[in-house]
Measured scan of single mutants.
Amino acid sequence: HNGKLCKLKGIAPLQLGKCNITGWLLGNPECDSLLPARSWSYIVETPNSENGACYPGDLIDYEELREQLSSVSSLERFEIFPKESSWPNHTFNGVTVSCSHRGKSSFYRNLLWLTKKGDSYPKLTNSYVNNKGKEVLVLWGVHHPSSSDEQQSLYSNGNAYVSVASSNYNRRFTPEIAARPKVRDQHGRMNYYWTLLEPGDTIIFEATGNLIAPWYAFALSRGFESGIITSNASMHECNTKCQTPQGAINSNLPFQNIHPVTIGECPKYVRSTKLRMVTGLRNIPSIQYRGLFGAIAGFIEGGWTGMIDGWYGYHHQNEQGSGYAADQKSTQNAINGITNKVNSVIEKMNTQFTAVGKEFNNLEKRMENLNKKVDDGFLDIWTYNAELLVLLENERTLDFHDLNVKNLYEKVKSQLKNNAKEIGNGCFEFYHKCDNECMESVRNGTYDYPKYSEESKLNREKIDGVKLESMGVYQILAIYSTVASSLVLLVSLGAISFWMCSNGSLQCRICI
């Protein structure tokens, strides 16, 4: 991952900044910058967002509201009850120091605090018919004063009620008058409520006091790749198909172990950190130390980045220098085999997901714990399936590479015959000098055995068991695999060879 928040398929997220979902939807004055928000790819909250409900109280069923919003990608904020005409018999300019803005008392931008007009609070009834052709999110509140005197001074009615009804919602609220500790300079409380109004449905408000009335509502448009994440990451000019709280993932790998919460087309989250597919040879310690064997393909974004291909070729060293050249036929066979294998694994496992966190309130801790156990169970199954699949494929890959290298080895052996000696570690020792032209003939299969047989015969008789390297004779190393990324691999195959001279070296080696 890149540690950044990015656009998702070209669409920017909605960053709530210092506000949370509650503050944004109710219209906390400190969240005025969010009022123009219309569309987004996903919503970003920060872990310690401080601006929620400015007048103390709870947004009821907040967790369910977050779940609903996680599939919303755009909205239209509109005046559901026009301020100047909807409440002619009531005062609608209630403000509070708890919702101060720029040093002055204020109130929510989407709600109206209705109080008595003169000395009376006549029963009010108002309704709205949803003609938007889509779901409408309606929010309101109920004020709970701290004393009967406060109730009387604001609403005149000691036994007030609030009723809200639609086809799918029907509740009646009565204020709970009680002494409470002071929070944000208030002994009173406000509880906030919401409902989704279906197209064509009607919502009716009736009250004799204590109503925090809707002013603006939201017509919602769903987008199934949307979601809500909690993150401290910063926004950058970048684009992605998959976003996590820790950063964007741009990967076609089937798995990731970065974060379980994802938005967009994302690899499946697994616990494993070692889900690797081999593309090189079986481990040979001396070669492995030099980083030549054991190439791997990573299938977990965050564990290993991208696929690494092994390729086969020849390396030689003689009086004229040293050089490398790919054996294109065996390399292409290996590439085709690995590509098919990788595609097979991805096809089997690479279903892209959006995974969002589930919200539970403080009273639902047991449910949250149960949900976590269920999620953990599914996660263990996914991890096991992934590891088992790759384990089985790896064994076949190792066998496949062994065969490829063996074929190259036999190709060289059949040409050199007794003009060189096998020394048991995949290397041959020449009994004759071999210049670049000679080396090329070994690589392309045109090695002239009779041409060098007499010199080889004489050297075999002279050496008589002495280690060949100390006599200045020449080696050919018969097994060799270097490691390159897919891009470098293609470039390498396009070149005939490249040279690395070893000044004054008397050794001649050709490596497979």
Rank of each mutant, 00 (worst) to 15 (best):
A386G: 05
W382L: 05
D402Y: 10
A325T: 07
S481R: 02
N252P: 02
I338T: 08
Y480R: 03
I284Y: 10
K329I: 05
N343L: 10
E301L: 09
E301K: 08
I338E: 10
N318V: 12
F378S: 01
V491F: 09
N343C: 06
K433G: 11
T331Q: 02
Y431D: 06
G472E: 09
C501K: 04
I510T: 01
F360K: 06
N283E: 10
G306F: 07
C508D: 03
Y384N: 10
F498P: 03
V342W: 01
E359V: 15
G337Y: 00
I258G: 01
G323L: 07
N340D: 04
Q352F: 13
V374T: 12
D435S: 13
Y480K: 06
Y324G: 08
C438W: 12
V342N: 01
F378I: 09
G357D: 13
G465W: 13
S492I: 00
L392P: 08
G303F: 01
E454W: 12
C508G: 02
D380Q: 11
F378H: 05
Y314Q: 00
L370K: 12
Y480A: 08
L253E: 08
Q475M: 09
H316S: 03
P285T: 00
H316T: 15
L468T: 15
E440I: 04
N318D: 12
G445M: 14
W311M: 11
F299I: 09
P245Q: 10
G294I: 02
T262S: 11
T354I: 08
G323A: 14
G321A: 02
D380I: 06
T446V: 15
Q415A: 13
Q475T: 05
I510C: 06
L468N: 04
R290G: 00
V488N: 07
I249F: 06
G310N: 01
V488C: 12
K467L: 06
K372G: 01
K417E: 04
L493W: 14
Y452Q: 14
T397H: 10
E410T: 14
M349D: 10
G310R: 15
N343H: 13
G264R: 05
I287Q: 14
L398W: 08
G377K: 02
V483D: 01
